[in-house]
Simulated assay, not measured.
Amino acid sequence: MVLLGTIVNGIAIILGAWLGVKLKKFSSEMKDTVMKAIGLAVIVLGFNMALQGEQFLFVIFSLALGGVLGERWNIEGKLNEVGQWLEKKMKKKTDGQLAEGFVAATLLFVVGAMAIIGAIDSGLRQDHTVLFTKSVLDGFSSIVFAATLGIGVMFSAFPVLIYQGAIALSATLIVRWIPQEHIDLFISEVTAVGGIMIIAIGLNIIGIPKIRVANLLPAILITALFVVGKVMFFN
């Protein structure tokens, strides 16, 4: 089953967020310490990912052009609007953090090497090991995130299902036309771009001045175009 790993990942996030909301009895000091600890760990993860790229100019230009497109399209604003819409649909009082939790968790769970590599493995080989591992990590992260940022974290499971599911289904098709070495190049460059965005997410978590990370997401598409260009004209 191609989507098994993605479905397990979504369920882990939902269950973790539900448990986090139930355990939401942390002092403000504890919340602050836990969130900053997670932020520091996320930054380290981002650095490890960022160093995996082979063509750093691709990374720089992808982030620059992706940022221009993201700002024009106002991706972060639209994600916040979705969170606010969900908050209204809840029809009950919240702590006002639903949008923040939804956006932060969506970016953390979607932007990363494991999401891409795991979904591709699921599609190409129906090997869900990477996504199962990611499910464990996301499940524990969502417990802490939901305990500190609220129930909005739970809704981040749906972008994860759509994003990873689309990659997995697409991978079942692209393998017929794209050689494995080209796929490997794409993964390494997207990992580097995603790593820098992960660093930005970590900085946001620990309270460094706000970076509109969602507006950098088009950089992933730009990276794919650069890789295609390299393969077509320089190989």
Rank of each mutant, 00 (worst) to 15 (best):
A115Y: 01
I116E: 01
R125W: 15
I43M: 14
I75L: 15
V111I: 14
H128N: 13
L131Y: 09
G67Q: 12
V42C: 08
V103K: 07
L169R: 11
S62A: 13
L108F: 05
D121M: 11
L51Y: 03
E81L: 09
F145S: 00
L124T: 07
G46P: 11
V111E: 04
R125Q: 15
I174C: 07
V68P: 00
V175I: 08
I178H: 06
A168G: 12
V68R: 01
L69V: 11
N80K: 13
V175P: 15
G152H: 14
A166M: 10
L79I: 07
F132M: 10
F56I: 02
T106R: 01
S142C: 09
W85E: 00
K134V: 02
W85R: 07
M49P: 02
V42L: 06
K93Y: 01
R72D: 04
K93D: 02
A105F: 03
K89V: 00
G112C: 03
L107D: 09
K78Y: 10
T106Y: 05
V110M: 05
T129M: 08
T129C: 04
K88H: 14
R176T: 08
I178Q: 05
T133E: 04
F56H: 03
A115C: 07
E54I: 00
P179I: 14
A113C: 03
G139D: 05
L131V: 14
V153L: 08
G83Y: 09
N80Q: 10
F58V: 05
K92D: 00
E54V: 00
T94R: 02
T129S: 14
L108R: 06
N80W: 07
M49F: 14
A99K: 10
S141E: 04
H128F: 09
G139F: 06
F145W: 06
Q126E: 15
S156R: 09
L51N: 07
A147C: 09
K134P: 12
K88D: 15
A168I: 02
I117A: 08
I143K: 09
L131T: 15
V82W: 12
F132P: 08
V82G: 01
R125C: 06
G46V: 10
F56D: 02
E71I: 05
R176C: 00
I174F: 15
K91I: 05
G139L: 07
T172W: 10
T133R: 06
F56V: 00
Q126Y: 14
V103R: 07
M49L: 12
H128E: 14
A99I: 11
